[in-house]
């Protein structure tokens, strides 16, 4: 199987996954969405009637008038067809696919726009800022620590690192976040407990305030993640250090430091790149809980709020965006990995 066939196969897979997630999401949320829409139509019809000051002789007549209004409204926006009706379903899927995510039910963006795409776009940079920064830091620490302990496999440092990795990966990151707030916001007043900056975004000092507020969540993510990371790197480095060409380099008199940190790390790179990319994509799901704990104003907090309010358009929108990011990352990683390591394409 050639490389291009591999790429095509993966692309088809990606589209199928995207489509499947979308159909599943809409199928699951469809009934609830319809119910909420109909309720809001009824609410507005009653509200309008109360404002209009029309008198009805009997309550039954009043009810009939409301029912008529509601029925007309439902017909105009096409709600008379159920959500699984082919026309509406295809319509919804198409709309989401081209990122026309519609309007939210309750939540608005900071600028006041009810459009889901506006809201998500406003929050996305903050999520990306927090999670790319933390991934970069974790990766750098993990690479060097992993190479360091990998070179001394079986030493005290190696065992310490393995133990730490096992422990830290059992801790829920959001729980560690709560402990950090208790330690550094309540006991020692070093960081604020809520990560939403108080300065308005227009203020020039906003960016510094934002970075200061970002520190505690950042430290939390790094603290929980770097141990397991170093452990992964160590696994690959130990494998590479056992290869013959490393032994050859040793006999050639290349300094040990250069062998470990340059040659061994470089050769262990392809699988490491894969894990980095996948963990980045995976950490975006973790954003939901971490952002909820720290109240970091990103997509995760938005998702958390949307669940609370049952704001379905936003839930569908973020699920889709997260899926797109996740799947694109998996896709690109697969391609890069296959490019570096031809064995993958066959298996």
């Amino acid at each position: 199987m050639g490389f291009s066939r591999f790429v095509i196969k993966r692309s088809i897979n990606m589209v199928i996954v995207l489509f499947a997630t979308l159909v599943l999401t809409i199928a699951l949320l469809g009934p609830t969405m319809d119910k909420i829409l109909k309720e809001s139509i009824l609410y507005y019809a009653v509200e309008e009637l109360n404002n209009k000051d029309i008198k009805f002789p009997t309550a039954a007549e009043r009810q009939r008038y409301i029912d008529e209004q509601v029925a007309r409204q439902i017909k105009t926006i096409g709600l008379d067809e159920p959500w699984y009706g082919p026309k509406r379903f295809a319509n919804t899927v198409l709309k989401v696919m081209i990122l026309d995510l519609g309007k939210s039910n309750y939540i608005t963006s900071d600028a006041g726009s009810p459009k889901v795409s506006d809201i998500i776009l406003e929050k996305m940079p903050k999520t990306i800022l927090l999670f790319t920064t933390s991934t970069i830091i974790v990766t750098v620490i993990g690479l060097y620590l992993g190479a360091f302990v990998g070179n001394k496999a079986g030493s005290l440092w190696d065992r310490l690192n393995s133990t730490f990795a096992v422990f830290s990966s059992s801790f829920p990151t959001w729980w560690v976040g709560m402990l950090m707030i208790f330690a550094f916001a309540f006991t020692y007043h070093i960081f604020p407990s809520r990560a939403t900056p108080l300065t308005p975004p227009s203020d020039p000092s906003y960016i510094f305030d934002l970075l200061y507020h970002m520190l505690l969540p950042l430290i939390t993510i790094v603290l929980v993640a770097f141990g397991a990371w170093a452990y992964t790197v160590r696994y690959f480095v130990v494998g590479v250090l056992g290869e013959d060409y490393i032994a050859a380099k040793r006999t050639a008199g290349i300094p040990e430091r250069r062998i470990v940190y340059s040659h061994a790390l470089k050769n262990a790179a392809p699988p490491i790149v894969t894990v980095v990319a996948l963990s980045l994509a995976g950490s975006l799901s973790g954003a939901i809980t971490i952002e909820a704990v720290f109240d970091w104003p990103g997509m995760g907090s938005l998702y958390y709020d949307a669940i609370g309010f049952l704001d379905i358009p936003i839930i569908i929108g973020i699920t889709y965006v997260l899926t797109v990011i996740f799947i694109l990352t998996v896709f690109v990683t697969d391609i890069i990995y296959a490019y570096f390591d031809p064995r993958v394409k066959v298996g």
Binding site: M14, T21, L28, T323, F326
Partner: peptide, 11 residues
């Protein structure tokens, strides 16, 4: 390739 947590939430 499915994003687990968002789908669990929706379910």
């Amino acid at each position: 390739s499915l994003p687990t947590l968002p789908l669990l939430i929706i379910l």
